[in-house]
Simulated scan of single mutants.
Amino acid sequence: MRNKALTFSLFITFFAMHYSNAQDWANLKRYEKENAALVIPKASEKRVVFIGNSITEGWLRVHPSFFDGKPYVDRGISGQTTPQMLLRFRQDVINVKAAVVVILAGINDIAQNTGPMTVEETAGNIFSMAELARANGISVIICSVLPASDFPWRPGMDPGPKVVTLNAILNKYAKEHNIPFVDYYSSMVNESLGLKKELGDDGVHPNEKGYMIMEPIVEKAISKILKK
């Protein structure tokens, strides 16, 4: 019963997202008020913006203590794909005076939330976000896509191998461009190329245990950048 309720909830979220997208495809209004309320960072403050999808958006809800007392800004939007994030990158990352951006994106591209995409196209959008950031003096962290062996809202797509391929492309780009690559995947994958059962309830989104694995991994990368 719980799985049926979760699947129905995901369907409603997915439907609502697509209905609203007819008016605002990239959801540019989502953080309009929050962005306007952000003050200009002090010289000593290094603002870190997390951009992504529901995995990033859910981070603040599931484990808010990770953000408490830190100059961390969550700019995740549930259901989003990389072309949508690329469209809102200027207003949600550059214009809020980020010093560092943490990019975690791609799983919804594989799910075809906004239509068919190749992993190369997905990677290209992430590369474009990284290049926009660096052109504006923002340090970049590229994250591995989390493992998933199926999608509750779109079953039967066998995303596991595509996630492996995309992560390999992202890791190669990061190495070539001296960008930190945060590897969540290796600590969270099971023998079926999916998310470990104890780390998430639906096979895609982390629970509190999942986020507690992710947090020290990304904080290590953030710390290294800020020390420079």
Rank of each mutant, 00 (worst) to 15 (best):
S192A: 14
L166C: 02
Q80F: 10
N167C: 03
I179T: 10
N3W: 12
D150Y: 03
E131T: 08
D24I: 01
S192L: 09
N167T: 12
E34N: 05
V189L: 10
Q23G: 12
N35P: 09
S128I: 02
A26L: 12
Y211K: 07
K224G: 03
N171V: 02
A5R: 14
E120D: 10
I103R: 13
A133P: 04
V48H: 10
P206V: 01
L226N: 00
L193D: 04
A123N: 12
T122S: 11
V49Y: 00
V73R: 11
D92S: 06
V96R: 09
R90G: 01
K97F: 12
L132V: 04
R2L: 14
N53H: 01
W59S: 01
L146W: 11
F8W: 11
F50K: 05
W25L: 05
N178A: 14
L132G: 00
T122L: 05
T56H: 05
V119A: 11
N53P: 02
W25P: 11
E219A: 06
E57F: 04
I51G: 05
V204F: 07
K224S: 14
V119Y: 09
S54A: 10
L195P: 01
S128V: 07
I107M: 07
M188S: 09
Y31C: 04
V93T: 13
L104G: 00
E219Q: 14
T118E: 06
S149A: 14
L10E: 11
M212F: 05
S9H: 05
V140Q: 09
R154F: 04
T7W: 03
R30T: 01
S187Y: 11
D150N: 10
N3G: 07
Y185I: 00
L86W: 07
S192H: 10
I217P: 01
E32I: 07
T165R: 15
A111S: 13
I126C: 00
